[in-house]
Design a protein around this nucleic acid. Sequence first.
DNA 1: ACTAGTACAAACCAACTAGTCTGTCTATAA
DNA 2: TTATAGACAGACTAGTTGGTTTGTACTAGT
Lengths: 204, 204
Amino acid sequence: MKTERNPENTRHRILQAAFQEMHKHGYQGMRIDRILTKTGLKKGALYHHFSSKQVLGYAVLEERIQKRITALWIDPLTSFADPLEGIHTLFTELENDWDDAFFSLGCPLNNLAQEMSPIDDGFRKRIQNFFKFWQKAIADALKKGQRQGIVDSSINTENCALFILASIEGALGMTKNHQDKEVYYICSRELERYLNTLKATYTH
Amino acid sequence: MKTERNPENTRHRILQAAFQEMHKHGYQGMRIDRILTKTGLKKGALYHHFSSKQVLGYAVLEERIQKRITALWIDPLTSFADPLEGIHTLFTELENDWDDAFFSLGCPLNNLAQEMSPIDDGFRKRIQNFFKFWQKAIADALKKGQRQGIVDSSINTENCALFILASIEGALGMTKNHQDKEVYYICSRELERYLNTLKATYTH
DNA sequence: ACTAGTACAAACCAACTAGTCTGTCTATAA
DNA sequence: TTATAGACAGACTAGTTGGTTTGTACTAGT
C-alpha cells in the first residue's frame, strides 16, 4: 500500500487548519501542534511547506482571508444598481455565505488587525493595504451612485466608506462578544439609517 | 537600610504593568516575566498578590479598564443637556483624556473582547455585562433626550446605543490598524451624521 | 518584647513551543 | 532503469512559560 502524496492538497489542508486555529485563538494563540493533530501531519511536512509560523500566518491572511473577503464582500459591490441598497443587502445577507463561526469568532481580518497591528508591522501593513482596497471599492460604488444621481453628490465617498467599514467590523465584534446574532441585525438596521442620510436629496 | 514595603502600592504597580502588557500584547501575549522586569519585582511577590495569570487578567479588566471607562465615558453621559451633542463631544474630545497609546493600541476593553470571547467565558461574560451597562447608560441619555423633546421619540434607544458603541469600537480598531488619528476623526464626523438622524423632527 | 502573619526574594521545575536534523519513501525526468 | 529532487516521518532540542517551594525580613497586634 502506497502512501498517498498530494503536495498541493497537503498545503491546502495546512492552510485550512491554520485558518481555523487563527480564527479561534488568534495568531499568537495558534499552536503548530494543534495544526498537526488536525491535519494528521508531522512537523517535517508542515515546515517543508512553510518555513516558519510567521510565514504560515501571512499565507493564511493573504491566501485565505483576503481572498474570501474579496469574493464575498468586495467583488459583489460592482453588481448593484443602487450602491446604498447594495451595501445594506451585502451586510444583511451575509448570514447565508458565512456560517455560524463568523458570528461566534468574528471577522478573521479584523481579529488579526486588532491583535497584530501593535506588535507585527508585517501583519499590520498587509491588513492596512487590504482595508484601503476594501474602502476604495465601497467608495467607488458610492461614486458610481453619485454619477447616477442616487447618492448625495456632496458627500466625501472615502470618508463614508471608512465609516461603513468601521461600523461593520464594530458590529461583528459586538456580535462575537454577545454571542447573539440579533446584535448584528440590530446594528444592520441602524447602519441603514446612516446609509439613508447619503441618499441624494431631490430638492431642486 | 530597610526594604521599603508598601503592599497596596506593589499591588497597584503590578496592575499597572499588567495593564500595559495586556493593552499592547493582549492577554495571551502578556508575559509574567515582562511584568516582573517592569516592576522590578520577583515571582514570589507577584504570586503573593495574584494567585494566577487569569486572576491577574480579571483584576486588570475589572479594577483598571472598566473603572477608567466608567469614569471617562459613562459617568459624563448624565451631565450633558443634549445627549446627542454630549455623545459626540465625548467621542471627539477623547484625545485629551486618553493619550496616544489609546490610538495606537486601541480600546483595551474591546481588545480583550475580541481576543478572549471565543476562548474564555470568564472574560467574555464580564465584558458582555460591562458592554450592556455602557449601552444602557447611552440609552438612558437618549431617553432623557426623548422626554425633553430633543431626541426623536420613535427611535429604539437600546438599538441606537448598541450601534453607537459598535461604531466607536470599530472606529478605534480602524485607527489602531492605520496608525493614524485622522481615521478616528473622520469616523467621528460620520457618526455625527448618524446622530443627526436621531434628532426630534419639529414637523407638527 | 514577642509572636504570628504578611510581603517579599531566590531558586527551581514541569510542561510546552517553535524550530531543526536526519533519514526515507515517492514521483518524475532522463 | 536510474539519478535526483521533492514530500514527508520521527526524534530531538534549546528556549520559554506559568507556576511552586522554601526561606527570610518586615510589621502589626498583644
